[in-house]
């Protein structure tokens, strides 16, 4: 199978999953106990009979469920999620204005996670059993055990309140790449990347140890290659294959973290938007936000699989 065939096949496999994601997101509003129209009424509002009828028509609530789904899906494909219940704006607009902030935070955090986790995992595996390994093991366990929101709060207290190095509230009304915002983002990104780097480190370490025991390592050494070459060119290269899979799973983990971290650092992002929408029961926004996240993750996994096939020639053929 050529690479192109592989990618095509893999793309086709994502289609049913994407459809499943839309079904689940669509059903969210319909799994609610009671009349689905209730979730479309703003909290505390007391609309007239006529207004309710109008809502039912607008959201096709009189149609059978599957018709409603296809009508919804048709709109969703062109990014039309209707109007927010609580705020007087288009759902798509609310999400698109916030998406860049979340993406930036996520990419920043993933970068930190990989930059720390992968080299630390290599070193721990090579120095297996000695002090360095032990210290990194404890650091990783602490990184995994620490709730990210708590770590964020502690960092705000130390760097924002005590030392006063950063502001405790984000700069408002600035573009995504504004230096003030990028500076502010360092702490959230570090907070978010910590647990991921700990996980990546552990995976990299155990994968390296598994690879180190393989025969091709002895073969590479028996050729007379330097230890460094054996580790970097042969062992780490093979270990990365399994790390890429885990890194893809980390994207879901980072999205989770972003929802919480945006709250901790009062940042405007998709996560915080969804949370506010939940507290206000603004279902069109929740639905659109969750769908966005699901789609992003499906494509991230797809990207990981494609990278995987580049790294591992056995997949391609």
């Amino acid at each position: 199978m050529s690479l192109r065939q592989y990618v095509t096949k893999r793309l086709l496999l994502t289609v049913p999953i994407l459809l499943g994601v839309t079904v689940i997101t669509f059903l969210m509003t319909h799994l609610q106990p009671g009349d689905p129209v209730d979730v479309l009424i703003p909290l505390g509002a007391n609309p007239s009979e006529e207004a309710i009828r109008q809502l039912r028509r607008q959201y096709h609530l009189n149609e059978p469920l599957y018709v409603q789904y296809f009508l919804w899906l048709k709109d969703a494909m062109v990014f039309d999620f209707g109007v927010s219940i609580q705020r007087d704006s288009l759902v798509s607009e609310a999400i698109l204005t916030r998406l860049p902030y979340t993406l930036l935070l996520g990419v920043f955090a993933l970068f930190i996670a990989v930059a720390i986790g992968v080299p630390a995992g290599i070193i721990a595996a090579v120095r297996k059993g000695d002090k360095v390994d032990e210290v990194s093991r404890i650091a990783a366990l602490l990184g995994i055990a620490t709730p990210n929101f708590w770590l964020g709060l502690i960092l705000i207290f130390i760097f924002g309140v005590q030392l006063g190095w950063i502001s405790t509230i984000p700069p408002s009304d600035v573009s995504v790449l504004d230096p003030a915002l990028l500076t502010y983002m360092i702490l959230p990104a570090v907070t978010l990347g910590t647990a991921s780097s700990a996980l990546l480190m552990r995976i990299m370490r155990s994968s390296m140890i598994e690879e180190l025991n393989k025969e091709y390592v002895r073969m590479a050494r028996a050729k007379g290659l330097a230890a460094r070459t054996v580790i970097v060119k042969h062992v780490a290269r093979n270990s990365l294959i399994s790390v890429v899979t885990v890194a893809a799973l980390q994207i879901a983990f980072i999205v989770d973290g972003a929802v919480v971290i945006e709250q901790v650092f009062s940042m405007r992002g998709v996560g915080r938007l969804i949370l506010q929408a939940i507290l206000q029961r603004d279902f069109p926004i929740i639905q659109a936000g969750v769908l966005m996240i699901g789609v992003v993750i499906v494509f991230a996994n797809l990207a990981a699989d494609i990278i995987y096939s580049f790294l591992d020639p056995r997949i391609r053929y």
């Binding site: 025969e215 073969m219 050729k223 042969h234 290269r237």
Partner: peptide, 16 residues
């Protein structure tokens, strides 16, 4: 001094 290994399937690095 060189070495020929037992199991060629594991002795060759799969990614090169």
């Amino acid at each position: 001094i060189s070495m020929i290994f037992q199991d060629p399937q594991t002795a060759l690095n799969p990614v090169y």
